[in-house]
Design a protein around this nucleic acid. Structure first.
Lengths: 182, 182, 182, 182
DNA sequence: AATGAATGAGTGTTCATTCAT
DNA sequence: CATGAATGAACACTCATTCAT
């Protein structure tokens, strides 16, 4: 339980808890009560720091977007270091994807966000940020066409992971990535 | 408003309405009331024809799965007819995807199902049917590795369409498909 | 399943089923569906033969009252045959009570009726018939004061049986009856 | 309408209202809405203070049981003070019963509880507490056999009062009690 | 005559949100 | 400032009753 004397800590705790709850049960089943319990804060804190539940969820997804941006930065630098051969590049990208999916809830989060954006217009810019961010990184490593293809493949991998709950086949994935790089 | 004396029509209307509502607001926000209003039937008809809301949703998704199977059959025959050149094959597949996505709600449905399957175990087999059905068709046209790659790309396209609400770039998509076919 | 061509049989089946259901779940939880299922008749038959559910329940309790009257007649004759000694009289009455309570549902029925009469004025005459019928029989065997005392004791035995689900202690009961007879 | 800022008052009001409603319409017909209306509290208050309707009813009956225990204590001391003659003892007990039955709803409550216990196992211990409590008090004043007989008679009196809505005949009752005491 | 399909009022319960403290 | 008590709208679901067939 974070202290009431640490507003920033509370906000952070709420956002983290919200991300976790959303990843677990989906945006639509996310409740104030679940978030408060998860964050270890009083129920009233949820509406004290964020006017409405949607605001809280949007803020949490926005924060997750920032984390994603940071992840992408790391992806970019790791990929850049492997740019000499297509094979190595594909291997590194495959590895990054697998690592990312190892954190199941986080992986499901992207899909939740994407779909929620379909019903909730104000989430759309946020979802576009994820989508275009990945595409941009991959485009910079190759070209826009390849970047689009790769980013789309990665989104497909994420979606499938949400259903199956399993990691994608490393070799099959790497092979597909290699083909798209050419 | 369907007639109260046309049970088959009612069932059909309910299933169709459910598919639409699910596509619009997501499985978790789908309510008896929304379905009844959309189908133009009284509230009581929903539980009269389907014991519980989950049953109704499952039946609707199952029916959508059957439609999807039929679509896949058509896809397979059209793709087979274009099998002589990779370029043509990619063109036809691109076209089929674009046509499919033209029916926005139906396109979003797949993603909704995939995500809902993540929280709702009983939907998982249904989701797997979609996922594996597409992969099987595309595998038969080429080989398992290519089938996996193509199906994953297509799922990515569907997911992105759910977010952006726009059709994917035809040329970019066809180009990506061609690369995966080689 | 009784035949639709045998209206009297249907009525009887419905009444019997109703008595059973009421005894099992109580008047308030008795439904058309439960009665129809128990009687093996179509749902529509319930409202076809009895305008409302309350009518059906009242008719069933009335019929049970007739059975009760017959039971009382038998009680009276058996008791009369034992009238020479108080000990024998008490022994026979105890035996009759125990036999009656052996059919648990029927035993609970009386209490259900008594209580339902508390909320439902139109059941009151029916309940009074049970109450006064027993009192009359026992009065004729002795005198009004003793009849009142004995009938009250018997009602207490029935009520306690409804709670405990167990038969009353035979010796304790017989002893109490003997005291009241003097 | 009790104040929203008086939790104890609200709980008490809810419990009292529940006892009244149960006494009036029976356990099975007792609804959140009826209780809320009777207590003069908003609907949400019912589930706010008691998680489920059954919890509320059980709590109300439990509280009534506590009141009953207190009543029994008082009965015992008043009866003890009259222990020198059987006639006086019977007179006091009769008086106590009549006083108790003067509060009709409370009197009916016992029967409702008894019957509900027949269908609802978790109410059984509560019902047994009433039943055995009375028997214990009357046993201590005489002997177990007499206690059983008297308690059974009293239960019969309560049950009959629930039907007739009238007080039992004082003289007849006193006479019956006297006979059981010997 | 007899039925079961159909309906909507009413149920218990959840929870976003408000606001007194 | 922070909280949790409080509320009522909305939910899934049941079922007495109606009525076309």
């Amino acid at each position: 339980m974070t202290s009431a004397r640490d507003p920033e800590g509370r906000r952070r705790a709420l956002l983290e808890a919200t991300v976790e709850v959303v990843a677990e049960v989906g945006v639509a089943r996310t409740t104030h009560r679940a978030i408060a319990a998860r964050a270890g804060v009083p129920l009233g804190a949820t509406t004290y720091y964020f006017p409405t539940l949607n605001d809280l969820i949007a803020a949490a997804l926005d924060q997750a977007g920032t984390t994603w941006d940071a992840d992408l930065k790391r992806w970019e630098s790791e990929l850049r270091a492997a740019q000499k051969s297509v094979g190595e590049l594909a291997g590194v990208l495959t590895q990054l994807i697998l690592e990312y999916l190892a954190d199941q809830p986080r992986a499901r989060l992207e899909c939740e966000l994407y779909l929620a954006a379909g019903h909730t217009p104000e989430l759309r810019p946020l979802a576009m940020r994820w989508l275009l961010g990945l595409r941009a990184v991959l485009s910079r490593l190759s070209d826009p066409g390849t970047g689009y293809a790769l980013a789309t493949l990665v989104d497909g991998v994420f979606l499938q992971a949400a259903v199956t709950g399993e990691a994608p086949p490393a070799d099959g994935l790497q092979n597909a990535i290699e083909r798209l790089f050419n």
